[in-house]
Simulated scan of single mutants.
Amino acid sequence: MIFQDNVIKEYLKNVYFITGTPCGGKTTVSRALAEKYGFELFDVDERFDEHKKMSNPLFQPAMNTYFNSADEFFGRTVEEYKNWLLNNTREQLEFVLLDLIRLSENKKVLCDCHLTVAQALAFSEPARVVFLIKDPSNLVDEYGNRPDHQGFFQYLNSATDIEKAKQTVNITLYELNVNRIEEIKSSSFFWIERTVDSTVESTLTCVEKHLGLI
Rank of each mutant, 00 (worst) to 15 (best):
S158E: 08
E183C: 06
Q167R: 13
N145A: 13
E142P: 00
S188N: 10
D161C: 10
V196A: 13
K164W: 01
H149D: 10
P147L: 14
S158W: 07
V178C: 15
I192D: 00
H149T: 15
K166A: 01
S198Y: 00
N145Y: 12
K185S: 08
E193W: 01
F152Y: 11
R146E: 08
E175L: 10
T168H: 08
W191L: 00
S186G: 03
F152E: 06
F189T: 00
K164F: 09
T168D: 06
D197Y: 11
E175D: 14
D161S: 13
V178A: 08
W191S: 13
F190N: 01
F152C: 10
R146T: 06
Q154P: 00
T195N: 00
N177H: 09
T172R: 09
S198F: 01
L176W: 03
D141S: 11
F189C: 01
L176D: 10
T160E: 14
S158V: 11
G144D: 02
E163R: 14
V196I: 12
S186Y: 07
V196R: 06
S198H: 00
W191Q: 08
A159S: 13
R180I: 02
I192A: 05
I171V: 07
E142F: 12
S188H: 06
E183G: 09
S188L: 10
T168K: 04
R194N: 02
F152P: 09
P147A: 13
Q167F: 06
T195G: 04
Q150S: 08
V169E: 09
K164G: 01
V169R: 10
T160A: 12
Y174N: 12
P147W: 06
R194T: 00
A159P: 03
I192T: 02
S188R: 07
D197E: 12
S158R: 05
F152S: 10
P147G: 11
E193A: 06
K164R: 14
F190L: 03
D141V: 04
R194L: 04
S158A: 13
R180M: 12
S186I: 02
N179S: 06
I181A: 05
F152R: 15
E175C: 05
I171W: 06
F153H: 15
K166M: 07
Y155P: 00
A165F: 01
T160F: 10
T160S: 15
D161N: 14
R180Y: 11
L176H: 06
S158P: 04
F189H: 01
S158L: 14
I181Q: 08
V196Y: 03
A159H: 09
D141L: 12
N170A: 01
R194Y: 04
E175N: 14
K185V: 00
V169A: 02
S186C: 05
E182C: 07
T172S: 14
I162V: 15
N177Q: 09
I192H: 00
L173E: 01
E193I: 02
Q167A: 12
I184A: 05
